[in-house]
């Protein structure tokens, strides 16, 4: 009999303890964020999607269209074609990243021998349709320049590249 009562008291105590935990949390500040209004700061080195970096001097892509990124990609998300610029340097004529396939794994950035690629810090990688997720060269250069603290196109003369990119 006394063991039953002891058991009941122990049970009651355990249940009261649980309620004390929840009521303590009740009077504390919520930890959630109101997302579109409030945004958490991103950590340093956050990986968004791959972007193409630009040469600050000329405004051209750093990319030489060697194709190392496309070969490193596990999902064939990158498609590119090269061309020769007027000064003889190789440049991408067409560079297309299919974000529907991208795993955001960083392998392309690591594969690049010219440090021409970088991951953006965007995390709102959404679109209303599939086409919006296929990023062409101007999109990638714009995002890359943003990571470098520049605005694309740069206010320097190198219009050849962009025209070609749009044509593709």
């Amino acid at each position: 009999m006394s063991s039953i009562i002891a058991d009941i008291l122990r049970s009651a105590n355990s249940i009261v303890q649980g309620h004390l935990v929840t009521i303590r949390e009740f009077f504390q500040k919520p930890v959630t964020e109101q997302y579109p209004d409030e945004r958490l700061p991103r950590m340093e080195g956050y990986r968004g999607h791959p972007t193409l970096l630009v040469e600050p001097e000329t405004g051209r892509p750093k990319c030489t269209a060697c194709g190392a990124c496309a070969r490193a990609c596990p999902n064939n998300a990158i498609e590119l074609e090269g061309m020769k610029a007027e000064d003889g340097r190789r440049l991408p004529a067409k560079y297309r990243l299919d974000m529907t396939r991208c795993l955001v794994c960083n392998l392309c950035v690591e594969a690049c021998p010219f440090d021409a690629l970088a991951m953006s810090r965007e995390y709102e990688l959404v679109s209303w349709d599939r086409e919006g997720l296929i990023l062409d060269m101007p999109d990638l250069l714009r995002a890359g320049a943003k990571e470098q603290g520049l605005t694309y196109p740069l206010p320097v003369k190198a219009p050849v590249v962009e025209k070609e990119g749009e044509k593709a």
């Binding site: 929840t22 009521i23 949390e25 009740f26 504390q28 919520p30 959630t32 109101q34």
Partner: peptide, 13 residues
């Protein structure tokens, strides 16, 4: 709202 507060959330906003 109350459930949210118990769980350190805001509840409907």
């Amino acid at each position: 709202k109350i459930a949210g507060r118990f769980q350190r959330r805001l509840g409907p906003m």
